[in-house]
Every structure is written in C-alpha cells, then in structure tokens.
Computed example of a mutant assay.
Amino acid sequence: MTSRGRWPLGVFLCLLGPALAAASGGPSLEAAIDRAVNLTAPRVVQLRYFGAGGDALGAAAAPVTGYALDDHWVVTSTYALAETPAGILCRFADGRQKQAELVSRDVSRQVALLRLEGAGEATPTPPTGRDGLVGETAIALGRVYSADNVNLTVGVVSAVGRLGGRAVQTDALASPVNYGGPLVALDGVLLGVIVPLAPPGQSGVDLYDSGVGFAVPVESIAARLPRMAAGETIRSGLLGVTLPNEDPLREPPTLSAVTKAGPAASAGLQAGDMVLSLAGVATPTVWELRRVTSGLDAGDEVAVVVRRDADLPPRTLQLTLGEAPPEVAPEVQLPLIETKKPDEP
C-alpha cells in the first residue's frame, strides 16, 4: 500500500488544465485520485534488470515499473528489454521480493510478460478493465523513485484506437518512470499498460514533452496472454504489397505491386487490385489500410475484400499475414545509479 494523505516526496502530480480541476471540484478530484491510486498501487511493482545481454550479474540499471497480474506473473513494457537480462528482481508494494524471468515479448505493442519464481504450472490471470473514454481522467502510475511509494501523473484520455488500434492515447505524462505501469481511470479501473509506443520513426521518449503518451488497452493484452505465456513472441503483421504514396489520406488503396511469394501474393492478390476491406474493417484510403494492417499480428488469418474489375462484384480472399521487419528503435541508455525526474538536469 502507499502512504497517502498528502503525496509524499517522490510522488508528483500533474493536473493538466485548470478547467479540468475546476469542473471536478478541486479537492474532490484529489480525493478521487487518492482512492484510485490506493486501489491500484498494490499491483504496481518495481523491477530491476541485471546483466543485460548475458553479462555477468552485476550493478542493476535504474528500476522500471511492472503491473502484477497475480503473485506469479507480471506485465511490463519492453523498455530496457532489448536484450534478455541475466536476472530480474521484482519488488511488490508490500516489500516482498521475487526473482523473475522474461517469458515473451509483444514486439508490436511493446509489452513484455515476466514469470516469477514459484509460478510452477500456474497460468497468468488475465487483466480486467475497460476501454478508455475520450475526455475522462487518466492516471499513469509507476514505482521508480521509491520502492515504497508510487509516482503518478494525471491527465485525460486524448484518443482511443490509436496506432492501428494498438493504443489508447493520453496526455498524462508517459516516460521511463512509468513505462510498464498501469493507466487507470478515476474509479481505479485499469485502462491499459503504459508503453513507449510512437508513430514510425519516433520513440515514446521523444514524445514526452509534447504531452502524448500511449497505453496498450486491457483487451489487447488479455487476448494475447495465452500465446505470450506459452513463450510466443508476437510481431507486427505484413501484407507484402506496395501502395501509392502521393496522397495517402485520400487515395484509394490500389496495389502498385505485390511481393512475389509474399502473403498477399499467396492469397491471390494482384497488382491493380483495390482493397475494400481488411479483417472486416473498411479501407477507403491508403492511410486506412496501413492503419488497419498496423494493428494486426504476424500469423493472423484475415479476410481481404478486393475489387479487381469495376464490372465484376468484389471478391473475398483469405490471407495469412507475414512478419514485418523490426523497426530500428532509437538507442536508449539507462543510468546505472539512480533515476532522476524527467525535468531534472
């Protein structure tokens, strides 16, 4: 549990927008945040990774945050997990400590699953929560500055279904101090797990000062949990097509080319086909097709509806997505001593 009343040193609160505070009644908002934090804090754990990349077990990097599904399994972000650590130490809110191991990663959503010592044959408990509502208060929690207290930022849910449906967007500040921690609503219900997702070519850390942060929705994590618990690495899906790029927001997705022996070609798609829908979602523009594809995983079997001849009815083909090449993420170095607040030099 956290010590509450007034937030202790090391816990910082960002209430974004005087209108939000005024509309919420000031002190009553603070009390509601207190209740939400106290409901969630017991599941917020501190993680330390040792000897990344198989180096000798040595000095720990700065701590990161995780969210305990139960006493045996923890979800976190893939931040600082580009390589597999030689050792992981998980500290619970009540002071208990357990060793852990990295079981799998969802590379597309930047979520990682850890199994704690003593788990045996226990399977992870799926997270419960709900979808975020645009405009509602969102609280981002971490356990980095102190193992005994949570750090938090507060904002609102800015958008849902972002990045191909992979993320809920918030202006509660998201950074290495809460990556892997929960994003919760004012009633304490879980909305998602905070991750360093970003549009292509950027990193989540790059977006910190812009008030843009992302969390993977609860349902997305729960749906992939059995595969991750079995050790499967989940990667982004690939169609294997070339699309026009002159005006992606308005241009229809007529295929410029189809990769030989790729997923689309194997499904029977041809250059010149116009994709009307993918996985049951209409794709009127190039941008929309790219958005839908980015939310699908390698190995997903989906229906694709195409128009090949204007004089003939559309045809439906079955397609199994291939594996997209990994993006080259910006190199991030973790400090080896203590973590500073993001606004400190």
Rank of each mutant, 00 (worst) to 15 (best):
P248V: 10
S236P: 15
N245E: 14
A215Y: 02
L239A: 02
E232V: 10
E246Q: 12
A215R: 03
R224P: 04
T233E: 11
A222V: 06
V216P: 09
S236R: 15
I221S: 13
V218L: 00
V218Q: 04
I234G: 00
L239V: 03
V218G: 03
L238Q: 10
I234E: 00
G213A: 12
I234D: 00
G240S: 12
E246Y: 03
L225D: 13
E246G: 05
L238V: 01
A223Q: 15
V241W: 00
S220N: 15
L239S: 07
G213F: 03
P226H: 10
E232N: 06
F214G: 04
S236C: 15
L238C: 04
I234S: 02
A229F: 03
T242N: 07
T242F: 07
E246C: 08
I234V: 13
G237I: 12
V241N: 01
S236Y: 11
E232R: 12
P226M: 13
D247A: 13
G231V: 08
D247M: 05
A229L: 11
A215P: 08
A229Q: 07
D247T: 04
E219W: 02
A229P: 06
A229Y: 02
R235S: 15
N245C: 05
N245G: 12
E251F: 01
G240F: 14
A223S: 15
V216D: 10
E219P: 06
T233H: 11
L239H: 07
F214H: 04
T242G: 06
E232S: 07
A222F: 03
I221P: 13
V241A: 06
S220I: 03
A215V: 09
I221T: 08
A215L: 09
E219Q: 15
L238K: 04
V216K: 07
E251S: 08
E232Q: 15
R250P: 03
G240T: 10
T233M: 06
S220Y: 00
T242C: 09
T242A: 10
G240R: 12
R235C: 11
R227G: 01
A223W: 01
A215N: 05
E251G: 02
E246D: 11
G240I: 12
N245M: 14
A222S: 11
L225A: 08
M228Q: 09
P252V: 00
A229D: 05
L239F: 14
P226E: 12
L238G: 01
P244T: 01
E219H: 14
P217Q: 12
P226D: 13
G213T: 05
P217A: 15
I234Y: 04
A215C: 12
V241L: 02
R235F: 09
T233S: 04
L249W: 07
V218K: 03
P248W: 14
R224A: 14
P244M: 00
E246N: 05
P252C: 01
V216I: 13
G240P: 15
P226K: 08
G240A: 10
L238A: 09
A215E: 05
R224W: 00
R227I: 03
